[in-house]
Structures are given as structure tokens and as C-alpha cells.
């Protein structure tokens, strides 16, 4: 498997400052520069409060940096308007959250369908694609279950299916196993492994070393700055059998 030279994410001197009123301010990111290429599998690590989520939200176009340059597939995101950002979030980015963030009153199929609705896909195609995505994460038979009728691991699979259904350029996961026990957490990691081997680009936030070791590259953050950016030598392979 060869990694192409195509740069998906290019961050230059990204800063995020929260103005807390008065003279007080929080510098969540203090100048982060990094590049991520197509089909990389990157783990972002760091202590709590170090700015991991802030960075992920900026990469995921959910949040905007206070300063710095962000290019997504060569396009300057800082200059985009709300609708263009919504389109990027919809088509180019699949986001998996620690707390799943599924619509509680809708079943799995409808949750997975939602990005397709906003993409303007027709009903028949939507149904088919959503079903395929659910099958892909091993939940083909759970289409009509609502989130509260699923286990935590299953909910996260639905969320992954939703993130993938529009075939995004990149999959972002902010502590996807944080709310799961280690066994179901491992199952999700197996899923990510598979997705990566199928050519997906993945960025994963975690503070568990053993989870990070699945990645090809680990970026360690402290106090809003990149401390270490390293290639993993001895990647841990999960026994997928």
C-alpha cells in the first residue's frame, strides 16, 4: 500500500483564542502547523484541555480559527461562507463524536440517511446508500432500531456509518471510544483499521496509548502546541480474525 502525495489538510500557524471577557483569554491553540496526506492514519494525543477537540473542530469546519491558514484539498477554508462550510461538512468530512450525537427519535436508517438528505440525494438512492453503509459497519439488521435500542458500540457504528455515507475525503473521530468499554472500543478500532485499509484518511483523537498505536502517525499536543509529530515504527495490528 503506497501513500500518495496528495495533501488533504494543510494547517499553518493556526491559533484559537477564546475571549473570556475583560483581559482574560484562553489560548486553546497557539500556532499549530501540520499537513495530512491522503490515506494517512493519524492519532492526536495529549492531556485533557490541551486543545485536541478545538483542533478537530477546526479541521472539521465546525469551528473557525482566530488566525492562521487552513487549506482543505487545496482550498482556503478561512474564506468560505456558511453555506460553503456546510457543504464541506456534508460531503468532504465525516465526523464521529465521543458522545455519538445521533438523533434520539430517529432510527438508525434515518440517522444515516440524514447527510444524504442535505446532499440532495433522491429517496430511492438514499435508502439504498444508507442500508449499504449500515451493512458496512455490520448493522444491516439494525436499520429500524432507535439509538436507545442499541448498545454503545452499536451506536458508535451507526455514527461511523453516517460519517461515511457521503464518501468523505476524511474521517475525523474525537475520542470515539471514550464512552465505550475496552472490548467494544477495540471493535470500533478494528472498524477503523478496515476503513483505513480501504483507502480512507483518518484522524483520531485519543488519550489511550494502546489505541494510538494503531495509527501510522502520532501527533502529541500540549498547551495548544504540537509537542511531537512522529511516525509509528511498530504499528500494532489488531487480530481481526
Amino acid at each position: 500500500m503506497s501513500i500518495s502525495n496528495h495533501v488533504v489538510i494543510n494547517l499553518q500557524q493556526i491559533k484559537k483564542i477564546y475571549d473570556m471577557g475583560g483581559a482574560e483569554e484562553v489560548q486553546a491553540l497557539r500556532g499549530v502547523s501540520l499537513q495530512i496526506q491522503k490515506n494517512e492514519y493519524v492519532a492526536i494525543m495529549g492531556p485533557s484541555g490541551s486543545g485536541k477537540s478545538t483542533l478537530m473542530n477546526i479541521i472539521g469546519c465546525l469551528d473557525t480559527p482566530s488566525s492562521g491558514l487552513y487549506e482543505f484539498n487545496g482550498v482556503n477554508v478561512s474564506e468560505m461562507n456558511d453555506n460553503q462550510l456546510a457543504k464541506i461538512r456534508n460531503k468532504e468530512i465525516g465526523f464521529v463524536f465521543q458522545t455519538f450525537n445521533l438523533l434520539a427519535r430517529s432510527d438508525s436508517l434515518h440517522n444515516v440517511e440524514l447527510p444524504l438528505i442535505y446532499a440532495g440525494v433522491t429517496s430511492a438512492d438514499r435508502k439504498r446508500l444508507a442500508r449499504e453503509a449500515l451493512e458496512h459497519v455490520g448493522l444491516g439488521d439494525r436499520g429500524h432500531h432507535k439509538p436507545n435500542e442499541l448498545s454503545g458500540g452499536q451506536r458508535q457504528r451507526v455514527a461511523v456509518a453516517r460519517a461515511l455515507v457521503n464518501r468523505p475525503s476524511i474521517l475525523l473521530a474525537d475520542e470515539p471510544t471514550g464512552n465505550l468499554d475496552s472490548k467494544t472500543g477495540d471493535e470500533i478500532m478494528v472498524l477503523f483499521e478496515e476503513l483505513h485499509s480501504q483507502g480512507n484518511t483518518i484522524i483520531l483523537v485519543t488519550h489511550e496509548e494502546y489505541i494510538a498505536e494503531h495509527a501510522h502517525r502520532i501527533i502529541r499536543i500540549r498547551d495548544g502546541m504540537i509537542e511531537i509529530d512522529e511516525i509509528v515504527k511498530n504499528r500494532k495490528k489488531i487480530n481481526t480474525a
Binding site: N83, R89, K91, N101, Y118, A119, N166
Partner: peptide
């Protein structure tokens, strides 16, 4: 509010 956040996160535009 949370539902609206989710919808926006997965690509809902203001108009939607």
C-alpha cells in the same frame, strides 16, 4: 438545540 447542532455538523445549511 443539540439536534440542530447535529444537523448542522453533518451538513444542514441555514436554509434547511
Amino acid at each position: 438545540t443539540r439536534e440542530i447542532g447535529i444537523r448542522k455538523a453533518i451538513g444542514a445549511k441555514k436554509n434547511n
